[in-house]
Nucleic acid binder design. Structure first.
Lengths: 338, 338
DNA sequence: CCCGATGTTGGTAACGTTACCAACCGCGAG
DNA sequence: CTCGCGGTTGGTAACGTTACCAACATCGGG
């Protein structure tokens, strides 16, 4: 940490002496003014305005039992609009409860997550909301976190029992795949994340269940499960479509894979590559999907709502309205046919 | 089996007594261990691990001159990927300097911005980074902020002299419009924000300059400057294209207007509406632009870099390497023809 | 063997705030 | 006129931490 010029804000004492009262009277006035004469309150508020005084929140939260008013939020990738919306939802609910959020980006890095959580605890956060990097759970155990409540979002951590907010990944993937099967497709490819990614695994399970329930075998040749970014997804789609026996439809488990697949489909059409024009089901919405050259079904959801739900769960622990074992909220997803 | 209940965070005193030393020795050990015997350090670290101790950062920053390690960041709309990337850039540089960010969303609301800034100051932030809502500047004046340095991003505040990071809005819009003129277009529409939005005004100026420099008159009938969201942009594009004398090309001043225009263009093609297929220049990139049914030129830039630049400017003030009058950094934009 | 230098450790005070208690005021009831 | 009560105000201590200084141990050189 680099050196910093000292930040000299006026203190409560300076306000007090300017208003001709004691610091206690200033404190009482700022706390609502109970049992302070109206004319004294006015003098105090005038001094506050004149000096540009702000209460030192860090000093306030020093006394035990006092909340810091901060919620620690760690997400995996702020550049992804999904997590931006998620963070927005958390911020909204936090603001409704008079709290601020401290935000950290983990970049899917376990070490960074541990570092962020330590720092959040050190800053006396009132609660933690985390999109876990699915590493180990040691630093998230209650004995490490003390009394700080924790809510997991989007993913679970193996072996950790905590309040969790999830999407209906399995159900959404199941219904999306079923829609393709209902439309007569039997050769349906899968594009998604590897199984160590919690949502990747769940969405694959939904796909697999729909296929096997209808007696359609899953062909590993048209299942690609290791694409994290658009370029990798594009390459995986290309390999799949280049097969002698390419899929007639594709289930894409997330936004990144859908965009990659679309790029490859667009390229083939521009270059006049022969072959089927696959139907696509995408878990995650994307803009201008209606302008795509192939029919796209969207499994849609609201990341902002997910964030709101996570924060609501957290505050229900903070205000004591919820006690007992960890709860899981699974938000529904909607399906929009082209 | 009993649930592991969270416990109060241990203090430095408890660590000290467990390690059989004084709090000062614990403090010294955690501060790097200068002048502490190695075996004592080990005892202390063992106690720290056993008790799960974290330094109380709020208490640390209580002594004057000590930085809080927090940077206050207020942006207008976290749901917009542009600002998500911006926040990511700020977070990255802050993390490189061992700082965390407190994030607030203003939603373009002046009152909310004032409230956020007050709270940030009250939390003793070491610096502020703000995408201003372009309201008045009273709460951002140095006499209100004390010694807390401020960096504005994307926009200026009228009458406020502060470090600022901008895009080359005028130049980008000029070059984008010029590209259309070079391609032979003379009837070029404009879609953008109203002039009270800082970037809206600057981008219009670039468009206007390119037009007048080449002696092409600006026709108010094909200039629409009051669309904040996709639906409004779509309606404005529709009205423009429905004219007896519609534009053959469109300059769109931001992402939201581009998406709206694209929706309308796609609708007309689907519905077989007669008329020209306008070329489009878009200030802001968007995904799958290469799949659009009309040629799209992108004026691209890197919001994450903008965030990094803003944070770099802030830290140059914090570590004293930059002094003197307010500086403005204008980041270049690139043009990608279809 | 002593002395100063160096390394190690602990006590005290202070950062800004507020809970708690004590002191004081004015007013109405007895 | 006194007493007591409620409303108002101020003093003190404490929250967890670290800068500063004092105290003590150890060691090498004279």
């Amino acid at each position: 940490m680099s050196t910093v010029r000292g930040v000299r804000q006026p203190t409560i004492k300076e306000v007090a002496s300017r208003a001709g009262v004691s610091p206690m009277t200033v404190s009482r006035t700022l706390a609502g003014g109970r049992n302070v004469r109206p004319d004294v309150q006015e003098r105090v508020m005038a001094a506050v305005r004149e000096l540009g005084y702000y209460r030192n929140e860090n000093a306030r939260s020093l006394r035990p039992g006092q909340p810091s008013g901060l919620i620690g939020v760690a997400i995996t990738n702020l550049a992804n609009p999904y997590y931006g919306n998620f963070a927005l939802g958390v911020e909204e609910v936090a603001a409704e409860h008079g709290r601020r959020i401290i935000l950290g980006n983990t970049g899917e890095d376990d070490a960074r997550e541990r570092q962020l959580v330590s720092d959040f605890i050190g800053r006396q956060v009132d609660g933690l909301i985390l999109v876990p990097t699915s590493g180990d759970a040691a630093h998230l155990r209650p004995e490490r976190l003390g009394e700080v409540p924790l809510v997991l979002a989007s993913r679970r951590v193996p072996g950790l029992d905590a309040d969790t907010v999830l999407l209906d990944d399995v159900g959404g993937a199941y219904r999306g795949t079923a829609a393709l099967l209902d439309a007569g497709h039997t050769r349906i490819g899968f594009l998604g994340n590897r199984s160590s990614v919690f949502t990747g695994e769940r969405r694959y399970r939904g796909y697999e269940r729909a296929m096997t329930e209808r007696g359609v075998p899953v062909d590993p040749a048209i299942v690609a499960r290791d694409q994290q970014d658009v370029d990798a997804a594009s390459r995986a789609a290309r390999a799949m479509f280049d097969l002698a026996d390419p899929p007639t439809a594709v289930f894409s488990a997330n936004n990144r894979n859908t965009i990659g697949a679309m790029r490859e489909i667009g390229r083939r059409l521009r270059d006049g590559v022969p072959g089927p024009r696959p139907a696509v089901v995408s878990f995650d919405d994307f803009e201008l999907s209606e302008l795509m050259p192939v029919p796209v079904t969207i499994i849609d959801h609201d990341a902002r709502l997910l964030g709101r739900e996570a924060a609501t769960l957290l505050f229900s622990r903070l205000d004591g309205s919820a006690e007992g074992p960890a709860r899981t909220v699974e938000l529904p997803v909607s399906i929009e046919s082209p």
